[in-house]
Each structure stands twice: as structure tokens, then as C-alpha cells.
Amino acid sequence: MNIPHSFYSKTKQQQRFFIFKIICLALLCFFISIVIAYATTLYFFPFIILPVIISIIAPFIDVPSLKATKKITYYAPLFIAEKEKNKRIKIHGGTFLDYCFTINKNSNARERTRFILYNYIEGLLKLVEELETNSKTQYIIQGTSYIINERTANKIGLKRTKQDGIQLLILLFNYPLLTLTYSITKTKLSFPNYRTVATYEGKVSDILVHKKSLLLLRDKLS
């Protein structure tokens, strides 16, 4: 399956112009919130809207910058890995930016879910294969998710571990943004369930044990 990412296929100038438009739109929304606040005497309203606006536009600014400085690496359009630190690599699902530029707008909820899962598996396989090639099979891969359950995680060599407090706080702060991406997946307004949030981790060597199963599942989803 060919997985295009139309944002990164743009020229640098086109990318910058798109980000500029996003920032202008965000400023307009904030200005409108100020006007509403004064018109309704709800002076706290802009202070509620501002964090939401920041969380929504942040991926369009931060992610391309982090990618350019190689602090993150895309192993699939919806699978990102942070730069290794102390033999530990943190992985993330796609951001709002990635969902906007890779999800087929004509696909239904089932097709979108399959596409997202394919990305996760494809990205994980590429990451562990790269680490295997570089003799880094003792490295630990860690991720926090509200989508993958413990049973599925165990099947691919990951085990539930102590909650990553920082990642949980990030997820809580980004709840409006997660709601947007979750709604894109479901093709309707949907709210992620934070009770299912869990942190999983595992050695690369443990994940490689399940490589054959991951390949079969990837091929099935494709």
C-alpha cells in the first residue's frame, strides 16, 4: 500500500505559506472570541478558547520543525518516533496535521480505522527492522495510547507499564485536538475515552518475536 503524505510533498515555500494561513486563521478565531466576550460580558471566554486554539494549531507548527531537525522520524504517515534517549524510543500516532493530509475524505469509518491500523503496524515494523539492522534490539519502545488495548499490545510484544504521567497530561491538554482526530476517524463527532489510556513498552527483541504475525496482519489490512 502506497501511503502518501501530501503536506511533505509540498515545497518548503508551500509548507510555510500553509502554516502562515493556519496562524492567521487562529488569530482571527481568537479576535472573534474577544469580540464575543465584550458583546456578552463573558470576559473569561477568550481564556477558554486560547488553549484550544493553541492545541489545534500546534501540530502544524511544531511537527514540521521537529521533523526538519530530526528530533522525530516518520516511519509511516501516522506513526512517529522520537529521537532515542537512554536506549528508549517513544512512539506516537499521527498528529492532527497528519490526519488532515493523509486520511481519504471519501472513505468511511471502517476504512479509516483499517488505514490507521495499517500505518501503526507498518511504522512499528520499519522502526524495529531499522533497530535490528543497527544491533539495537535491547532498546525499549514506549507509547501511550487510548486506542490499543492490553490484549492487542501483548500480541505484538508490548506490556502495560506504569502510566507515563507527562504523556497523560499532554493527552489531557490536547483533548479538544484528540476529539477532532477521533471524529475524523469515526466520520462523526466522537469523544475519546480517557479511561482506556495506558502506557505500553517492550524491547525491540520482544517485538521482533512477533514479526511474522505483524507482517500477516499488515498484509491483511492492506
Rank of each mutant, 00 (worst) to 15 (best):
M1F: 14
N2L: 13
N2K: 15
S6K: 14
S6D: 09
F7N: 07
F7R: 04
K10N: 12
R16P: 03
F20A: 15
K21V: 13
I23P: 04
L25Q: 08
A26V: 11
A26P: 04
A26F: 10
L27H: 03
C29E: 14
F30R: 02
S33Q: 02
I36A: 07
A37H: 00
A37K: 00
Y38P: 05
Y38T: 14
A39L: 12
T40K: 01
L42Y: 09
L42P: 03
Y43H: 09
F45S: 01
I49P: 04
I49Q: 08
L50S: 15
L50C: 13
V52T: 11
I54N: 02
S55H: 05
S55L: 05
F60G: 01
D62F: 13
P64H: 03
P64A: 02
P64D: 01
P64Q: 01
S65P: 07
A68R: 13
T73C: 01
Y74G: 07
Y74D: 03
P77I: 02
L78T: 02
L78Q: 03
K83S: 11
K85N: 04
K87C: 06
R88L: 15
R88G: 05
I91D: 01
I91A: 05
G94R: 01
T95L: 11
F96R: 15
D98I: 02
T102I: 00
N104K: 11
K105R: 15
S107F: 11
N108P: 06
N108G: 10
R110I: 14
R114E: 13
F115N: 06
L117Y: 14
L117I: 15
Y118F: 10
Y118R: 12
Y120D: 15
I121G: 01
E122H: 11
G123H: 04
L125N: 04
L125E: 08
K126I: 03
E130W: 08
N134M: 14
N134E: 14
S135N: 13
K136E: 09
K136R: 10
I141P: 05
Q142I: 11
G143R: 09
G143E: 13
T144E: 04
S145H: 03
Y146H: 06
I147S: 08
N154P: 10
N154W: 06
I156V: 07
G157F: 00
R160K: 14
K162L: 09
G165V: 12
I166G: 08
Q167W: 09
Q167N: 15
L169W: 07
L169P: 06
I170G: 12
I170E: 12
L171T: 11
L171V: 08
L171W: 06
L172A: 13
N174Q: 15
N174M: 14
P176D: 12
L177N: 13
L178V: 05
T181M: 02
T181W: 00
Y182R: 12
Y182M: 09
I184D: 08
K186P: 09
T187M: 06
T187W: 05
K188I: 08
K188D: 10
F191H: 10
V197M: 06
T199Y: 10
Y200W: 07
E201R: 07
E201T: 03
G202L: 03
K203Y: 12
V204S: 03
V204M: 00
S205R: 08
S205V: 11
D206R: 01
I207T: 04
K212W: 13
S213Q: 15
S213K: 12
L214S: 02
L214A: 00
D219I: 05
K220W: 09
S222I: 12
